[in-house]
Simulated assay, not measured.
Amino acid sequence: MKIKRHLAPVAGALLLVTGAASVALLGGGSATAAGNPSSAFGLELTIADNTAIDKLPSVVSTNGTEVTDELIDTDTLNPLLSGGVVQVKAKNGNASANVTGLGVGDGLLSQLPPDVKSQLDNVCKTIVDALGPLTDPINQQVVGPLLTQLNGVLKTISDATDGSPLNLSLLGALDLGNLTSLQLNGLCDVLAGRTKIVNAGTVIAECTGDTGKTTIADLKALGLPVNIPVTEPNAKVEIPGVVTITANEQIANADGTFTVNALHLNLLGQIDLTIASATCGEVTTDRESPSEAPSPTPVESHVPVTG
């Protein structure tokens, strides 16, 4: 749509005041931004190298002013996620992402046939009961035969999910003997749907310029507390074959921006989840807007009077 601008004529567009004419030349144009903007997002999920959640919610401060967004309850995004409140914010040289109350792994086995779920529940209950009097590491003489039985059920799960979007074949390849009794107990609770692979109470990524920090509180894996240091970049905690947790990932990007990923989870070797990411950049305006242009300087000239 074309916008028509109406200009009122004033003495033929030339204003004469006491024999002097004032002429103002005005430059105009909208401001444009140059540089790399700051940005932030809450969640990014890939399953078997396929994008399941593409940086939601996300904000980009293209002109340097503050922009915010939020997401309440992640249940609708993907069956693997539950709960959660996500808040993201970015402005020139500053960004943050805050995720609270997020559960990961709820829908891991939602696609299994009922008879497989029943087998899994039964063998896990037997293992959990047997683990009661044991201490670390797992007593293979007592639990060994039960682990063989559990491995059989996990291989059945592998076959049942073959060709599905989430192929759980790695469950069948787990070396359960590498798990502590508490970890095995927690894994069984996850497989039976009684707990989540990871619970994240509070996860915050923040950056200012080329520095950043991560805050993590109330983090659990397989129902067990996880104390992961965040004072140094790229701290890792692993439960063999089940989950690898990397905290406070810090990346100096090739374009000059700086990124902090508060948490990066890898589940079963094929599920990647980034929780809370902030990227800091700077933009500048390379052209002034009309409102910012300097006041015009009158140019005085004498106009001859005849008659």
Rank of each mutant, 00 (worst) to 15 (best):
Ser118Tyr: 04
Thr74Tyr: 05
Lys117Met: 10
Gly103Pro: 04
Val23Gly: 01
Leu109Glu: 02
Asn50Ile: 11
Leu120Cys: 09
Ala90Glu: 03
Lys125Asn: 14
Gln119Ala: 10
Thr51Glu: 14
Pro145Ala: 12
Gly144Lys: 08
Leu146Gln: 14
Leu131His: 00
Ser110Cys: 00
Val60His: 02
Thr74Pro: 03
Pro113Glu: 15
Pro79Glu: 07
Leu134Val: 09
Ala40Trp: 04
Asp73His: 03
Leu81Glu: 11
Ser96Ala: 14
Gly42Trp: 04
Val123Phe: 13
Asp115Asn: 08
Pro57Met: 08
Thr148Tyr: 00
Asn63Cys: 08
Val86Leu: 02
Gly27Lys: 08
Leu15Trp: 02
Ala97Met: 03
Leu131Ser: 02
Thr46Ile: 07
Gly103Ile: 05
Lys117Thr: 11
Ser30Val: 10
Thr32Ile: 13
Gln87Arg: 15
Thr62Phe: 04
Gln149Gly: 00
Leu80His: 07
Lys117Asp: 07
Val143Leu: 01
Leu77Asp: 06
Ala34Asp: 12
Leu150Ser: 06
Asp136Ser: 11
Thr51Gly: 07
Val59Arg: 03
Leu131Gln: 06
Leu71Phe: 15
Gly29Lys: 05
Thr68Gly: 03
Lys117Gln: 13
Lys91Trp: 01
Gly27Arg: 09
Gly132Phe: 07
Gly101Val: 03
Gly107Leu: 11
Ser58Lys: 08
Leu81Ala: 10
Gly105Asn: 11
Glu70Asp: 15
Ile53Tyr: 04
Leu146Gly: 01
Val104Phe: 04
Gly103Trp: 01
Cys124Val: 09
Ser39Ala: 15
Phe41Gly: 08
Leu14Glu: 08
Ala48Phe: 07
Asn50Ser: 14
Leu71Val: 14
Lys55Gly: 03
Thr68Arg: 12
Val88Ala: 15
Ser82Ala: 14
Pro145Arg: 13
Val142Ser: 06
Thr65Asp: 04
Leu147Ala: 02
Ile127Gly: 02
Thr74Gly: 05
Ala13His: 12
Cys124Ala: 13
Lys55Leu: 10
Leu45Glu: 07
Leu147Tyr: 00
Ala40Asp: 08
Asn92Asp: 15
Lys125Glu: 15
Gly93Arg: 01
Ser82His: 06
Gln140His: 11
Leu16Tyr: 11
Leu80Cys: 13
Ala95Trp: 01
Asn50Leu: 13
Gly12His: 07
Pro114His: 02
Ala48Leu: 07
Gly42Ile: 07
Gly83Tyr: 06
Leu26Met: 08
Leu26His: 12
Ser82Tyr: 04
Ser39Pro: 01
Asn63Gly: 15
Pro37Met: 01
Leu15Tyr: 06
Asp106Met: 09
Ser61Phe: 08
Ser110Met: 09
Ser61Pro: 00
Ile53Leu: 11
Thr148Ala: 08
Val88Arg: 10
Ser82Gln: 11
Gly27Tyr: 06
Gly83Ile: 07
Leu109Ala: 07
Ala11Thr: 10
Val23Ile: 13
Leu108Gly: 02
Asp136Ala: 12
Thr74Lys: 00
Pro133His: 06
